[in-house]
């Protein structure tokens, strides 16, 4: 993990002194992290039920309003507990 992470961090610096990155490749690389996250969460939520969907919506709302990851975690967890209890 450390090695491949460092390779990506140093890779751009090394590469750009040698080649020009085309625009489409740049765009493709830029969406990768988001696409991976969606691919993790999508099937997980599809397997889950209404309590998780509701809690997911709460976490989304909190993350969007506060931009705070820890706060989104806490409210998502509180919401899932609440909805599972109902």
């Amino acid at each position: 993990m450390s090695a491949v992470t460092y390779i990506t961090k140093a890779g751009g610096l090394w590469l750009l002194s040698r080649i020009e990155v085309p625009e489409y490749a740049e765009a493709g690389l830029a969406v990768l992290p988001g696409a991976i996250i969606v691919s993790i969460v999508g099937p997980e939520l599809a397997r889950a039920g209404p309590p998780e969907w509701g809690a997911g919506a709460v976490a989304l709302l909190v993350a969007w309003r506060t931009e705070n990851v820890l706060l989104a975690l806490v409210s998502g967890v509180a919401a899932v507990l609440l909805f599972r209890g109902v």
Binding site: V31, P33, G34, I37, V38, I40, V41, E44, L45, E52, A55, G56, A59, L60, V62, A63, W64, E67, N68, V69, A72, L73, S75, G76, V77, A78, V80, L81, R84
Partner: peptide
């Protein structure tokens, strides 16, 4: 028991919100 099995999903949702760069996404 504490709903923590949902914590990672909540964190990923928060990261997705951060990565949302507008409708082109």
């Amino acid at each position: 028991r504490y709903g923590l099995d949902f914590a990672l999903t909540a964190v990923f949702i928060a990261i997705a919100v951060e990565l949302w760069d507008g409708r082109s996404r």
